[in-house]
Design a protein around this nucleic acid. Sequence first.
DNA 1: CGCATGGATCAATTCTACTGATCCATGCGA
DNA 2: TCGCATGGATCAGTAGAATTGATCCATGCG
Lengths: 298, 298
Amino acid sequence: MKLSRQFPLNALHVFEAAARLKSFTRAGEEMGMTQTAVTYQIKLLEEHLGEPLFFRRPRQVTLTPAGERLAPKIAEGFSVIAEAIGGMKDQSESTLVIHTTATFATRWLAHHLGTFQLENPGIAVRLETSQDMVDFTRAEADVAIRSGKGEWPGLKSHFLMKSHFTPMLSPALAATIGGVTEPADILKLRIIDAGDPWWPMWFAAAGMPDIDLKARPISRYGAQAFEAAAAVAGQGVAILKPEFYTDELALGRLIQPFDLLASDGSDYWFVYPQARRNTRKIRAFREFMRKSMPTFRD
Amino acid sequence: MKLSRQFPLNALHVFEAAARLKSFTRAGEEMGMTQTAVTYQIKLLEEHLGEPLFFRRPRQVTLTPAGERLAPKIAEGFSVIAEAIGGMKDQSESTLVIHTTATFATRWLAHHLGTFQLENPGIAVRLETSQDMVDFTRAEADVAIRSGKGEWPGLKSHFLMKSHFTPMLSPALAATIGGVTEPADILKLRIIDAGDPWWPMWFAAAGMPDIDLKARPISRYGAQAFEAAAAVAGQGVAILKPEFYTDELALGRLIQPFDLLASDGSDYWFVYPQARRNTRKIRAFREFMRKSMPTFRD
DNA sequence: CGCATGGATCAATTCTACTGATCCATGCGA
DNA sequence: TCGCATGGATCAGTAGAATTGATCCATGCG
């Protein structure tokens, strides 16, 4: 047995209520519609079944034998469906999947996520890191934190912070050349990942637009976090986002020789599908981000 | 857990098909709609749940974990509902409730119903008799056979036969006055149910409009069939519908002294609710009536 | 490389579902 | 017994949901 496409399921739903309450008016109230609408839906259903489901008596309706037989099974069917949907909602509320870059994950989320989990014990967090912008229509992701222009169709994005950068190195390395006091000093040292596009941008901002690092040996680390680790180890100068390394600066493991910050025009954004903005877990995470990130914008 | 009124049940139904077939296009075919419509419905459902159910991959869709969890339960729910409806249809197809008068039941249906039952072994027949026209909205009735004008709102009616009548009596009673050869002879005999409104109509048709039987003792039999039985027993003259008594005439238990038939303007009709015209049992009974009643009209 | 496949998008259209007003029959209380 | 309250039916009018057809797009496959 298979229900045809045309089958008036909504009418069936109305019938379930009417049969239970033995009243079109009260069924209408429960379903948030008028008595007229209930009358219409029930008639529609009867038409489809070719069989009356209620006897119309003045001031009351009573189920026909057919309706009597049908009602409990329909109620059961809807309850199965309602349970399934309820269950799914519970489940899906319970795990938040965050997509972001390895760098943001290690340098910021790792420090703050503990707070979110304390405040939301019911929500498990899964962190997925990759270099590319996640496609919400293809991957299992609830929210993402990415750099970009903040304009993605179908997605709601909140500005988090500027994505600016500046050279950083270990104090020991700086000492080997008697300290780094002007941009040109950098060129005396090994550049970690000389192929990083941030370098020419920063030198241009520093008034040296013609610096070409291409000649230098290029080793790609692939992620800022790894470059930073190499810099801490004194292996060279890295170009980093200082907000991510406040602790290394405080500990004196890295120094930031210049105040000058350059930017490639893209910023950090917190994004999620517009349509899911009101799910509990996304709402909770948004509030957490709002609190934890001083430069958060709606 | 209760489904809200706004819940898109039809979308859920579409989802069931799409999840099973893993294709919007094929789901559309199965449901008799276009792929576009499926896309719309699925999106609607996802919007409602605040959660994607399919990953959109080029050339195919696959269920998200949430969709994966949901699909089987939804399928089960719909199957419960479909079973219920299927079961009800079977049941309801299996009993035909006929409302009619005692007379029509005994004098015509009793003789023909056997044929119907032989031809439709799956359909049980229940016969309900009463004097009043059945109200299909209040009583458990599938079809009715009644006299009237053939115009009832919401009901389909088929003409069955004229409701004309003529005096009938037993040959023995006729012999007591040397035979009944002209209308006035009737008055020499006892009139069964002299209050029957058919008498003055018949006398009027016979050119004797002023006959008043009111003075005679009136005993109401309430149903033609009982009057006929009294007539067979020689208790008097009854005014009857000859079509109902062809066998009594053939057996010589009753005679019809005059060809003259009078009518009160109402005829016999076969009626049922317009909306149920295509249910199997009603269709079957209609065909039976068409065959069995030479004057049947659509 | 070019085509076939399956889904997304968009604008236009159809038609369902619903409402508000009104009517009707009846049960109930005064 | 009358009048009113209650609950459903009917009807016309309407907002907006559902659907379609045309078109676009990405990709897997020969």
